[in-house]
Design a protein around this nucleic acid. Sequence first.
DNA 1: CATGGAACGAGGGAAATCCCACAAAATGCA
DNA 2: TGCATTTTGTGGGATTTCCCTCGTTCCATG
Lengths: 267, 267
Amino acid sequence: MQLSAHRGETTRPRLAKAERREQILLELRLRPHVGIAELAARFGVSSETIRRDFEELSQHGLLCRSHGGASAAPQGRYPDFDERNQNRLEERERIGRRAAELVQPGDVVMIDSGSTTLQAARFIAHRDVSCTVITNSLPVTMALGQSAAVRVIVAPGDYDPAEAAVTGTETVDFLKRHRAGRCMIGATALAVDGVFETVRGFAAVKRAMLSVSRESHLLVDSAKFDRHGMARVAAPEEIGSVVTDRAPAGALSAILQRRGVAITRAT
Amino acid sequence: MQLSAHRGETTRPRLAKAERREQILLELRLRPHVGIAELAARFGVSSETIRRDFEELSQHGLLCRSHGGASAAPQGRYPDFDERNQNRLEERERIGRRAAELVQPGDVVMIDSGSTTLQAARFIAHRDVSCTVITNSLPVTMALGQSAAVRVIVAPGDYDPAEAAVTGTETVDFLKRHRAGRCMIGATALAVDGVFETVRGFAAVKRAMLSVSRESHLLVDSAKFDRHGMARVAAPEEIGSVVTDRAPAGALSAILQRRGVAITRAT
DNA sequence: CATGGAACGAGGGAAATCCCACAAAATGCA
DNA sequence: TGCATTTTGTGGGATTTCCCTCGTTCCATG
């Protein structure tokens, strides 16, 4: 009613749908939960229509349905990549939980953006371990903000909405001005010739984190093994340890072992 | 809930209640929404018990009830402040919409954290005006990320979960290394002797934004008039214009007029 | 002008939730 | 041990939501 904006005409149905759904998503940025009846009244449409909106938005992973309404999708919407696999999600949770156990009280930890590292951040907050985290990811920041024991330092940079994280030279410069005891990074691929990332801006951030951290943990699920991405982040020997759901095999396993990379398997 | 828990014995139902509620809150750190039936089954209690848990936790502001379940409390929960007034919310929306109209294509805008400036950010994203925004607020960042036309630059700093924004010397230094055509800041009070902010860390951020912006807009609703906060942000003459819902009156009006502060009233 | 499709609303039976009051069980204290 | 208090479970009626289908409206296209 207040947002039909620039034109005083009657609301055109063609715009109505997209507009309405945009509004729903914007509203969910401000509140964790919206009700069906409430939105139906606000937009002057039937509850059935809102229900259909929820249905579609939910399929795209943009919100979470619940009885009588919907809540915001877990921070950081991993977009249309194949990341939305429920199987993988469970594996990422296991990996994140295991990685969170590596954090010791007093640690300074750099955490990369990504769905797996976000899981780690959630479990670190859950454990309430006293530490300092430096990150370029907004979802990681907010997840860790839940815990009063964690001090979170946000890096500056250009905002990338698709990943809900910042990148660029500001980010890299900032990270290089700091030092950390350990870092946790994700990747799109891990092969015998190194760690790969598809989004170029993020490769530089990961490299920066690796270069200023004493220990480093690569968080990847086993589906990433023996694949490649666009930009190489690091050689195998630059990684301190790999936290994953299934131990690698064959040549990859041999390389990692030879280069002294520890494998931590999350159960 | 005032019972002494320091005697570790077998699982006593006495602990059950507090323990259960703790678990509920921990679960909500990992997921945005939990259902009643689901939790009842998980804890082996009746749904009525879960309902009572929700009721009490909700009263303490630790979660948000919804039909059939509950969701996590809003990230930056400005808790007991009177901020949650629905009336004020509409006024803030009007102010935000009006302020968004001030942004011209090509502008570089600094936007402060706060509920009113967040509204402005939402409407800027809604207008799809091509501009660059520098902010210390995560909600502002994400709201603007909705628009492909807006380039968002995030300032670094210590994360404040209560406001979902960063502050500190890193933030201030970063802002001072930049220049902007205009800035939009909120405040907790506006009186004849200046602009006030209650949270000290944020006053420094607002001052930094003011000092590097050619034009400045103060976004405050009329309930903030003739009140004070803990820290003074600026003198009246340091503000370029005030965007508000109702024109100030009396001495405040006279001072602003004499100091050349423009008043923009949002309809 | 006619046709097709998308979006939306209406209706109704099934299921889930809510709310209230009261009873049962567990616990603390004397 | 016995009693008061707290916590939890149960039951049922009112309400809300769900989910499915069908008819209407509006727009685009030929």
